[in-house]
């Protein structure tokens, strides 16, 4: 009995993944199934779910209503998508040089620099976003500073409306997800063997060519990982847009949240979640197909 267990690799493997499997089943598969079922349902006058099979929620999301075509919800989807793209691109552009700088720093200093990157994460997420309200609002830090400078130069100054706005939401998102891009890029940069740089230099590549032909391709796994870690959460989050958008910037995340909590329309909220899920899945699949998960490039 014991002997056969030792040799039964399949059983061993199964037992090893069992805890995760249970958690996934209870926390992911069940709720997801429930959401799918609900999304085909209807709501009665009291906000209770009637389980039927109707595509009505999906039609409404795509813009078909009794009164004609309405792109309200598609607009929200597009806006979320666009914001996620913007955030990801800006975060890559900001994180890459920083990660490069850390990876090239003397070994002893690298840990300290990484530590600095992680410090903000010690503070609660909500508090960090509220801090941006303090910075961006009418009488906030930024406007006071600008006003001070304008005063010194004796230029008339009216405070900017940085907050609430879509721009403020973008700033908050970029700020929030920067560390999640820096860390994977740093990791892949740090893994590049120094003698590959020397080999490139030996083969007549100057700093520019070495960067584009060696550094960038070899750090792509980090960029891919960072992109997924940024893009996917940004497209679904609702807290940042709630706080920094002053409830005016509505993203898919906000839509879903409000359908469940304010509008008491779980079927419609479920349908919106499913659309969001499918969209994210499709984009992630396309992206990883196109750029790979990076494992084949990993140094070796």
């Amino acid at each position: 009995m014991i002997q056969s267990f030792r040799e039964n690799r399949r059983l061993q493997g199964f037992l090893l993944i069992l805890p995760t499997l249970l958690v996934m089943l209870v926390m992911l598969v069940l709720p997801l199934t429930l959401t799918v079922i609900t999304s085909f349902g209807q709501r009665d006058a009291d906000g209770n779910v009637i389980y039927t099979f109707t595509l009505e929620n999906y039609w409404r999301l795509l813009g078909f209503t009794e009164t004609g075509w309405d792109d309200l919800y598609l607009g929200i989807l597009m806006r979320s998508l666009w914001l996620a793209v913007q955030t990801t691109v800006i975060v890559i552009l900001m994180a890459y040089p920083l990660a490069y700088f850390i990876a090239r720093a003397p070994e002893k200093r690298r840990n300290f620099l990484l530590f600095l990157v992680l410090i903000p994460l010690w503070t609660n997420f909500i508090i960090r976003i509220y801090a941006w309200v303090m910075i961006l609002r009418g009488q906030g830090v930024l406007n006071s500073a600008l006003g001070g400078v304008a005063g010194l130069l004796s230029i008339p100054f009216t405070p900017f409306d940085f907050y609430p706005s879509q721009g403020a939401v973008l700033v908050g998102m970029v700020y929030e997800f920067l560390p999640f891009m820096i860390l994977p890029i740093y990791t892949s940069l740090e893994k590049i063997e120094p003698n590959l740089y020397e080999a490139a230099a030996d083969l007549y590549a100057n700093a520019f060519h070495t960067f584009w032909r060696v550094t960038v391709p070899l750090s792509m796994p980090g960029v891919v990982a960072g992109t997924i870690l940024t893009f996917v959460p940004v497209i679904g989050t609702f807290v940042v847009s709630d706080i920094l958008g002053g409830r005016q910037v509505i993203l898919v995340g906000n839509l879903v949240q409000r359908q469940f909590l304010d509008a008491r329309n779980p079927p419609f909220g479920s349908a919106a979640s499913i659309i969001l899920l499918l969209m994210t899945l499709a984009l992630t699949l396309y992206y990883t197909r196109r750029f790979g998960l990076g494992e084949e490039i990993a140094a070796g």
Partner: peptide, 20 residues
């Protein structure tokens, strides 16, 4: 003179082939 401007080439002990 930096390495990329010298008319010499190196075969590294670990080969240093570009993996990608």
């Amino acid at each position: 003179t930096p390495p990329f401007q010298r008319p010499v080439n190196t075969v590294f002990q670990s080969y240093a082939l570009f993996p990608h």
